[in-house]
Computed example of a mutant assay.
Amino acid sequence: MIFSRKRAGDGRQSRDERAAEVVLDLESEEAAVPVLIRGPYDISEAPAGVDRLDLGSLHIPAVPEVEVRVQADQQGVVQQVVLVHGQNALQLGVFAAPRSEGIWDEVREEIRQSLLSDGTAAQEVEGEYGTELRAQVRTEDGVTDLRFVGIDGPRWMVRGVYQGTVATDPAAAGPLAECLDGLVVDRGNEAKPVREPLPLRLPRDVAEQAEQAEQAGATPDGARPRQV
């Protein structure tokens, strides 16, 4: 299933504007109060008034010319989410984490060891979100560059895997970075094992269309490009 949106103007902010900034109390000139203006956001702190695709635990902002490709089972449970812009792609995953600390450092090391066991060396690089992993892997289509990023939030962690030119040139991320910066995580209050994937699902209207189409023995509209 593919969700896409045509360009409606370039609303991308600069890197500095998307960074966390500090707002001063001009009247009292007391201690500065940090304000998060770049995500991924927890749903409790997400900016309002933004058009997003609701996939359950992940709410993905509608960014011009970015396709959201979703692979789901017959029950509408999403197995994979990939954002595509041109020749670049960003695969997203979201996982439960403990309240007291982040898990990206441990997860990153596990990814590095897994790649190493397959004969692939991964390099740690400091990036916009902290320490990243970069690697070249062999696929059926040849050698592919990958860039793994992780962002720890309150009781969750978002993992992103960039593929394409953006894997070696972060400046090429463009709208994909805008999607990651505007991502919203709905962790929920249910207790979950650490590192368990948080549940993802198709939007209600798409799931209903798919169910109706399956009952009628036809191809669901959701299997074709859809505007959001």
Rank of each mutant, 00 (worst) to 15 (best):
P170M: 04
L58G: 08
V161K: 07
G188I: 05
G164A: 06
Y162K: 10
R159Y: 09
I2D: 10
E65F: 04
E65N: 12
L116A: 13
V137A: 11
Q123L: 10
V184E: 01
S4G: 07
G39S: 07
V33Q: 10
E124G: 06
L116C: 06
R7E: 10
I103P: 00
Q136M: 08
I60R: 04
D152Q: 10
D105P: 04
L24W: 08
S14H: 09
M1G: 10
P175G: 01
G102W: 00
L198Y: 08
V22G: 00
V78P: 03
Q209W: 07
E101H: 14
L55C: 15
I111R: 01
M157C: 13
Q227Y: 15
V107F: 00
R195W: 06
E109D: 07
V184M: 03
P170T: 05
K192V: 15
Q71R: 12
R112E: 14
A31K: 13
Q163S: 14
A210I: 08
A223H: 08
R159A: 14
R52K: 11
V166P: 03
P193Q: 14
D10P: 02
V81I: 03
D169K: 12
Q74W: 02
A218S: 09
Q74C: 01
L26K: 10
A218T: 13
E196A: 11
A31L: 15
V66T: 04
V206A: 14
E110R: 13
L146E: 12
V84R: 13
I43E: 15
E110S: 13
A173W: 03
E29W: 13
G49Q: 11
A177T: 01
A191F: 10
R224E: 06
C179N: 01
H59T: 04
Q13H: 11
R224S: 09
R38W: 09
E29H: 15
E128R: 15
T139S: 13
V82N: 00
Q163L: 12
R99L: 12
R52D: 06
V82P: 00
V158Y: 11
W104N: 00
G130R: 13
R224A: 08
E178A: 13
R159C: 12
G130S: 15
V107Q: 01
W104M: 00
I103A: 00
Q136A: 07
V184G: 03
S14M: 06
D186L: 02
Q74K: 06
R18P: 00
E45V: 12
L92K: 04
L133D: 09
E27Q: 13
D181E: 06
P175R: 03
